[in-house]
Design a binder for these strands. Structure first.
Lengths: 215, 215
DNA sequence: TAGATTGTTAATCGATTAACAATC
DNA sequence: TAGATTGTTAATCGATTAACAATC
């Protein structure tokens, strides 16, 4: 534990939310064979100011060198540590409809440290089906399986009507984070993280700016 | 056109981004049979302050009544108009993998004013396949079909390596908004809207707050 | 060395909130 | 009328940016 006598202000959530974007861009550059970058280049790529990137990173330490910028490998490692990505997280998908199917089959999770171990569905005709190497489990066994395996994260892909009820069960069983794909606001205790993904909400945000007259 | 002599400050984008959430909650209440609500109730539901809701709405007009609050039907109509949802938008899905399949089959789009007319894929063995009532089109015909039909919005569900190239084609053809599911930052002209949906980015945001020691 | 770029400070800018007169 | 709730103002709070000394 570091100095507990000094009031340490929490790092703004909006800063935390940008770190994964920095990480993604850095890994992209790394895969291109690039070894170093600067706040300027990173900012250009992401459409933000270099000052913002330097300020964001300064919350966590000093990762660069004057004159030369940042070593990509080093910064990637640091960001991974900060975001607690230096471990594998156990993820369950709830709901084996088209979306659950797509999530279970998405290969972007595993190599970024998220291991989908389970997919649950209340439709017993789907139970036993193989989805991306994961076998559909009966909804009845949700609590037992999640508690036993210590699943920390849930991807919630059930109909909106059932999202809150399933959430309550997940929270009670010890899930710490839920990424909700249902078009509904969830209520959870303060120590549980919730992320939202509703494509319609995103589209409705964009239509505001569209020119309705253009074809 | 309203008063063009007075400098009208643009409404903050962060406000626009909350309107779809207000709309979603209002429609939910409406479906529950509720007729009126207040900024207080809406705020409680969405986890934000009543003052913020009133302030946000005040950018667009006066929609409530002292003492009684807001008529849900009326406010829903107003928000729909503001967000340009009083028309049907033509949407194309690009990429007919698992995700494209899920998007084409999602029934949350059509009744909220987004009509998925087309789904494209470069894999000719998929062409002709029926996905949620939409037949897979060859990628070669992207430009011709989108221009002819006046498709305004694209859901981009292609691999990251191809996302920017496809984006360039979409933009050239006149698409005004792109919801990008590929884990990569896109570059577009300023008059084109881009939204991002990368579940890994959202998960990485949440893991920062998780207790790695728990279970 | 000269040029580049960091981390940080202070100023600016913008968003949220508390408070309240108006009024249904 | 009494109670409730709006729309708006001004104060507060927080985030972004410009600028620059430090230094690689």
């Amino acid at each position: 534990m570091s100095n507990s006598l000094v009031a340490m202000p929490a790092i703004p959530d909006i800063v935390i939310g940008r770190l994964p974007l920095y990480l993604r861009a850095l890994i992209y550059m790394k895969n291109q064979g690039q070894l170093t970058t600067s706040s300027n280049e990173l900012g250009r790529r992401l459409g933000m100011s270099s000052a913002q990137i330097r300020k964001d990173l300064s919350h966590f330490g000093e990762f660069g060198k004057q004159g030369t910028g940042y070593h990509i490998n080093y910064l990637v490692d640091q960001l991974r540590q900060i975001l607690k990505l230096d471990q594998e997280w156990r993820v369950a998908v709830i709901g084996a409809g088209f979306l659950g199917h797509a999530l279970a089959n998405y290969n972007g999770f595993i190599h970024r440290g998220f291991h989908i171990s389970w997919i649950f569905d209340s439709d017993i005709t789907k139970v036993g089906e193989d989805m991306g190497g994961v076998v559909v489990q009966p909804m009845d066994e949700l609590e037992e399986t999640i508690a036993r395996e210590g699943t920390q994260i849930a991807l919630l892909a059930v109909p909106a009507e059932r999202a809150q009820a399933v959430t309550d069960r997940l929270v009670k069983t010890g899930v710490q984070a839920i990424l909700n794909y249902a078009p509904i606001n969830l209520t959870v205790p303060p120590d549980v993280q919730v992320g939202y993904s509703d494509p319609v909400v995103q589209l409705q945000h964009m239509t505001y700016y569209l020119d309705a007259s253009r074809s």
